[in-house]
């Protein structure tokens, strides 16, 4: 053992930096703090309750699974905790505890461990759980508490209103409210700016790259602008579409998940474009008001194909080689 510490016997790359799965996971969790602070400020103790419950449930389920599988699971490596926090950001602040428990079970078991654990999963575990809950418990998943409401009033999200009532119902909503988070919604979809603030750290640390977020948000912006330009009476503006719903949370934290996003440059561009395209397709013509989670899951499924057919050109590569 002493020798191993002095002489590292390993294949290349031999140059290492300090990053590990654990460090990356906990860094990502820390960068979510600004957005979580806004959520807690908006929704009060309910937000804290949801966060605490999902975090405890996901880590506990992962610890339980670790006892039954043949491969090693480090349930404190931060990945389960991150899944828990992202799940919390995807549900309304008044979500009942049993729904969060079902969500944690689905995220960890169906979303991750059936594929063989961290690094093997095809789909983003938190999004699998969100979609599962949305389909299973439509009532609980669509009664959103309004920010700052002390008496537990619930209401529709701006996107929900747009779907059911049309653009006229949104006349009183200002864009600054949307950007800062003064609207009804799940914990994580309220403040786009706070999410961006946290994500800046991830860009700086190079844990995420610009391709997916920029193409994702850009595609949503362009499609919304085209429809808004054609008929401003029916279709909401591009800024409305990028600041409402889960676009920022999805583009910055969900679509860029290292395990479930493409590795190559062109693959990333197409992945981001697909996420934005399907999001707008569902928002404008689908039966659900919000499509970010479905869009990302759909694109997750084609990641292996994107990686295969759009490889990076490496130095020394020969055409038709």
């Amino acid at each position: 053992m002493e020798v191993n510490r002095l002489l590292l016997m390993d294949s290349s790359p031999l140059g290492r930096d300090g990053d590990s799965t654990k460090k990356i996971m906990y860094t990502v969790i820390l960068t979510l703090l600004p957005a979580l602070t806004v959520s807690v400020w908006m929704f009060g103790w309910n937000a804290v309750r949801v966060l605490a419950l999902t975090s405890i449930f996901t880590v506990a389920v992962e610890a339980l699974i670790a006892r039954f599988v043949s491969y090693r699971i480090d349930f404190m490596d931060g990945s389960a905790l991150l899944t828990g926090i992202l799940l919390a950001m995807n549900v309304p602040a008044n979500a009942p505890w049993w729904m969060l428990l079902v969500g944690a079970l689905v995220a960890v078991v169906i979303g991750k461990q059936v594929f063989g654990g961290l690094g093997q999963n095809m789909f983003n575990p938190a999004l699998v759980a969100r979609v599962f809950l949305l389909i299973s418990f439509p009532v609980e998943m669509t009664s959103w508490p309004l920010p700052g409401a002390v008496d537990g009033t619930t209401g529709a999200t701006p996107l929900g209103l747009l779907k059911t009532e049309g653009l006229g119902a949104l006349a009183g909503t200002h864009l600054t409210d949307l950007a800062l988070g003064q609207v009804g919604g799940s914990l994580g979809e309220v403040s786009a700016l706070a999410l961006l603030l946290g994500a800046l750290v991830l860009f700086y640390k190079k844990y995420i790259t610009w391709e997916i977020p920029v193409t994702f948000i850009g595609t949503v912006f362009v499609i919304a602008a085209v429809f808004n330009g054609i008929n401003p009476q029916t279709y909401a503006g591009p800024l409305f579409h990028i600041f409402t719903g889960g676009v920022f949370l999805g583009a910055l934290y969900m679509a860029t998940d290292m395990v479930t996003s493409p590795l190559t440059f062109k693959g990333k561009l197409l992945f981001g474009f697909g996420c934005g395209f399907f999001t707008m397709l569902i928002r404008l013509f689908g039966s659900f008001p919000e499509g970010v989670s479905f869009a990302i899951l759909l694109m997750n499924a084609v990641v292996p194909l994107l990686d295969k057919y759009f490889p990076d050109k490496r130095f020394g590569m020969v055409k038709n080689g």
Binding site: W98, M99, V102, I110, F132, I135, S136, F137, P138, E140
Partner: peptide, 14 residues
Amino acid sequence: RTILLFVLAPGAFI
């Protein structure tokens, strides 16, 4: 509540 997803198509696959 019951878990509605299980009577729908994705529930069959899972």
